[in-house]
Amino acid sequence: MIALFLLTILVLLAALGAVWNARPVHAALLLALALALHAVLYLMIGAHFIGLVQFMVYVGAVAVLIVFSLLITRPRDEEEEIARRPRTLGVGLLCTLPVLGVLLHAVSRFADTGPVATDAPAISLERLGTILYTTHAPAVLAVAVLLTAVMIGAALFAREPGKKSSVSPDP
């Protein structure tokens, strides 16, 4: 429980850094840290498979993609960002604090009556696979189609319009 609590604080700090850091690359790296800490959290409470998948997909693919597109676009709006800080903070808090209040209220209402913690239910990999490919087979197929479409779509989007293509250059 103490370890869980410490980890929670670390996740919060990393997420806060990802949201608030003015340097885009630092924010992206802190996002990677926050996602990795999420994976550690999953490993810690017994969801080993999910934790490893989370690490592989989020740290290995999503965070690297984000960092890579930051490298390509090279945003340089740090000073501007810091200058807008006071105004931003006010508006942001005004919009998000009610949401946080509602969520925390719901959690606190629920936590009093919530079920008591038990031993970690183990995920047998075989069971997970069986359920995934029988009960949820249509969903797996749909995700497969989606991912294929995304791969082709992303490749088409990211393609540099070549000389042969009919797209005219910037006016």
């Binding site: 790296l29 990677a32 994976a39 998948v53 690490f55 740290v59 290995g60 960092v67």
Partner: peptide
């Protein structure tokens, strides 16, 4: 999954 750390 641990190999993902190399890229970062």
């Amino acid at each position: 999954s641990i190999g993902a750390l190399t890229e970062v």
